[in-house]
Each structure stands twice: as C-alpha cells, then as structure tokens.
C-alpha cells in the first residue's frame, strides 16, 4: 500500500505527547478503566511538565487524581469517588478540600452511573441522558449538571437528567495498540470507550505496540478505533501500580506504602520527589522499581483465551 493511503503513524514519546496534547486549564478524563489500566505514567508526566488548573474527569481514579491534586496541577474535579481503593481515603484530596493545601480544588460530585451517562451522552452527541438513579439525594441537589425532570411521555414519572460531558482530552491505557492508535483492551472496560468518543482528542498509552494485523485479527477486542486517536505512546508498565491484565499484576504494596507515606504534606512531597521528579521518564521509573519487583509483578500463569475463528 502506498504511504499516502495508510493511516498516520502517531507514535511519540510521553514527554512529546503531553507537551503537544495538553495545556493548562484543560479538562482531561483518566482512569476510565476503573481500578485497572490507570494511566499513571501520563499523570506523572503532567506533573513533571507542571500543568496547572486542570479539570480532572473520571468515575474513580484510585490514587492518580490524589497525586495530581497534591502536586498542584488541578483546580476542578468531576468524579464519583477520589481515594485509595484498597485503603479508603486519600490524603491529598482531603488536605485540599479540608485545609486548602496546596490549594482548594472545586469538586463536582457524581455517582459512577451518572459520570458514565454524562460521557455516554457526549459519545452519542445528545445534550443529556435520563436516569432513574440519584432521585432524592444531595448529589442531585448540588451538582448543576444533574437535574430532576419528568418523562416527556408520562409526566408523572420522575427522572434525573445528566448533562453531557465533553472533556478536551481522554488519556487511555491499553494492553496493546498499533501505531495508529487502534487499541486492544481486555478485562473490565469501565467507561473507556465512551471516554474516547466523548473527548475532543485521545491519547493512547500502550504496554506494547503491535502490527495492525494483530488488531484486525480480533476486532471485538478493539475498544478504541485508531481514527479517534491523536497520539500513541508505548511504555511497558505504564499503568503501574494498577494492573494490566496479562501483562502485569496490581502492586498492592505500592498502594499501602503510598497511603502510609503521604499521610502528611511533607511525606507526600518526598514521595513526589522520589517517584516523579527524580525519574526522567517511565524507563527511569522501572529502574527505580527494580528488576526484582518487576519480576514479582509479572504474569506467572499465562491464561490464553480460546481460539476465535473469524474465517468464512
């Protein structure tokens, strides 16, 4: 095939991608895969490039949003949950809201279903979606993007309406992608597909880059089609400490350690220095983790899916 007829190669380094695709005051959806495939590596580069006044969007983000809040990158959060999933609360989020350290972040509270509907509405190109959840709650009363409505077909029926949410950028971690951005992801898919379709631009962060033939051999596994994608970054262990099914396991210890180390502001600043500012990139981060830890987290028992015949 002629070069002009093939899709564009969008591979770049993380520092290039964050520099080209992000700017201050942007809204960015991350953590759309819930507890797996969290794009920590991209979050750390946002911190290194000192992005400010970001608006973070996501259902839950485990400790990623907490790190960005603590690093002073964030002014707004639209989310259902911000914390440390296995440990409970996360301290930077609490310090920001309770004490304004490093500064106060404005939080718009959603539920998971509501944030999923907000992104789905944007993905469908409609201004809102109706839902039966959240009626009678203070979430509905306090979030300006949620209102109570009547069904247009039966005015005795109460519903909640969720306004579409169109982030400027989706950052999505995938187990594998081709250089055009078509991404294979497996496991729980959370709100990944909608986050790409809802956003103006998409950055794919992949553990592995594969030939397009690999993607096209299993099209049901493609969660994000490449034409929606603006840049692709390949970095092994990009989602660490979150898991990437079939690539590496969840580093539970890292989450408990983070919980203990970031209890006070000084502890967090030390953590940030060690794990973000003193490592130039993900390769440096892997060196800091060390070979023994990486081996410990690697897949011990391969579990291949049954063969799927796409022949005809």
């Amino acid at each position: 095939m002629e070069e002009s007829m093939t899709a564009k190669n969008k591979l770049m380094s993380m520092s290039e991608a964050i520099s080209e695709l992000t700017s201050d005051e942007m809204s960015i959806v991350m953590g759309s895969g819930m507890e797996q495939n969290i794009p920590f590596s991209a979050g750390h580069e946002l911190i290194r490039q000192k992005r400010r006044n970001l608006h973070l969007v996501g259902p839950i983000s485990d400790i990623l949003f907490d790190q960005l809040i603590g690093a002073g990158c964030v002014s707004k959060v639209s989310a259902a949950w911000v914390g440390n999933v296995m440990m409970g609360s996360a301290y930077n989020f609490r310090r920001s809201i309770e004490q304004g350290i490093p500064h106060k972040v404005e939080v718009t509270d959603y539920s998971n279903f509501a944030i999923a509907c907000a992104l789905h509405a944007a993905a469908l190109g409609v201004p809102y979606l109706p839902m039966r959840s959240l009626l009678g709650t203070d979430i509905l009363k306090n979030n300006p993007n949620l209102i109570e409505i009547e069904s247009p077909f039966d005015t005795s029926e109460k519903l909640s309406a969720v306004k579409a949410l169109c982030p400027d950028l989706a950052i999505i971690h995938a187990q594998r992608a081709d250089c055009h951005g078509s991404a294979h992801i497996w496991g729980g898919l959370g709100v990944v597909a909608d986050s790409a379709k809802a956003s103006k631009r998409t950055l794919i962060l992949a553990d592995e880059i594969v030939e397009t033939e690999v993607i096209e051999s299993d099209p049901n596994r493609t969660v994000v089609p490449g034409f929606l994608v603006d840049a692709v970054v390949c970095e092994p262990y990009a989602a660490h400490p979150s898991p990437s099914q079939g690539k590496y396991n969840r580093d539970h210890h890292h989450y408990t350690e983070y919980h203990a180390d970031t209890k006070d502001r000084e502890g967090f600043l030390n953590w940030l220095e060690r794990w973000v500012f003193e490592v130039p990139d993900r390769a440096g981060y892997r060196r800091l983790l060390g070979d023994a830890r990486l081996l410990e987290l690697s897949v011990r028992d391969t579990a291949l899916a049954a063969e799927t015949d796409f022949g005809y």
């Binding site: 259902a80 949950w81 914390g83 509270d109 539920s111 998971n112 279903f113 959840s133």
Partner: peptide, 8 residues
C-alpha cells in the same frame, strides 16, 4: 471519597 457506585 464520595459515592462511587453506592448511590446508584
């Protein structure tokens, strides 16, 4: 931390 999916 917030609702997560609890309110739903």
């Amino acid at each position: 931390p917030g609702s997560g999916g609890a309110s739903d």
